[in-house]
Write a protein that binds this DNA or RNA. Structure first.
Lengths: 151, 151
DNA sequence: TTGACTTTGACTTTAACTGACTTTAGCCTT
DNA sequence: AAGGCTAAAGTCAGTTAAAGTCAAAGTCAA
């Protein structure tokens, strides 16, 4: 198993056990999980981004910390979707799309069925025929249009 | 016996033994079966396609993998969809897509929500960025892949 | 002998991981 | 206060470990 997944798992558990907020000390955690400190930054920047529904704050120096908070989507589904649609630009890569969809799904905004459907519709596999330079743009268009049918 | 068949056989056995899902490491498998890594891609793309009822996911980079899942048709609806998927060729125009979808919808095979979603995903409007000559092909691919998630 | 299917390997892309170096905050000493 | 020491966290570019792509060459049956 990848170290990144171990770290991510550890943080997720902390989030679950406390009320959606985890405060860690970078060096200490790195040490206890047997990785290099910057690995923690890597994990956070690849798996706990704002797009994925987390807020990260931190402080350097003596007594420093990293605090990760999971944002609960409380707003109504329609406006959540509108918000996503507006925040997606003219271009969207596959990984980002998947992350957004997983998030919407785990927050109950869209069903598993819909998640799978849209995931399939914007997957790289499906777009191999379109010229590479256009793929992310086409993906963004498809993605937004499909989401919009749900509002 | 061809190497491709050995590889395909190996993967099929994995699928049978586990619960219809096989996760492999490309290089490792290639090595243990005595072929070149890209052979695995060839086998997958020629024998484990969507039309043949498989879903393939993968991840690159350290700790990467290829996961192949066999879709099993449990429901009657599943086989209707499978039939449609197989009857759609490499190319599909918007009108035909819409007709098929409306049919599936009015026969209760797919919901209105799903109908709207797929319709949006294969609409001409969404594909304006892709070169005209490719549009119907891309549409067919998207269409089939989306439908397959419903089986 | 031709055309579809297979095999191969060189090259590309992506994700994970690492460590040297930088920046920041608190504390202590004067 | 000011300056320096120390204990954090941040950055970034470079390395490694995968999987993906593609076109050229090989095989084989009709």
């Amino acid at each position: 198993m990848r170290i990144s997944d171990v770290v991510a798992e550890y943080i997720r558990r902390m989030l679950d056990e406390s009320d959606g907020t985890a405060e860690i000390q970078r060096n200490e955690l790195a040490n206890s999980l047997g990785c290099v400190p910057s690995q923690i930054n890597y994990v956070i920047s690849s798996r706990f981004t704002q797009e994925q529904g987390y807020v990260v704050e931190s402080r350097r120096g003596g007594g420093g910390y990293i605090r990760i908070t999971r944002i609960r989507l409380t707003t109504d589904k329609g406006s959540v979707i509108m918000h996503i649609v507006n925040s997606v630009g003219e271009s969207l890569d596959e990984l980002s799309a998947n992350i957004i969809l997983e998030n919407l799904c785990s927050n109950g905004v869209i069903s598993q069925e819909v998640t799978k459907l849209i995931t399939a519709g914007v997957s790289e596999r499906v777009l191999t025929q379109v010229p590479k330079v256009l793929r992310n743009e086409v993906r963004a268009t498809i993605f937004k249009n499909m989401l919009l049918t749900l509002t």
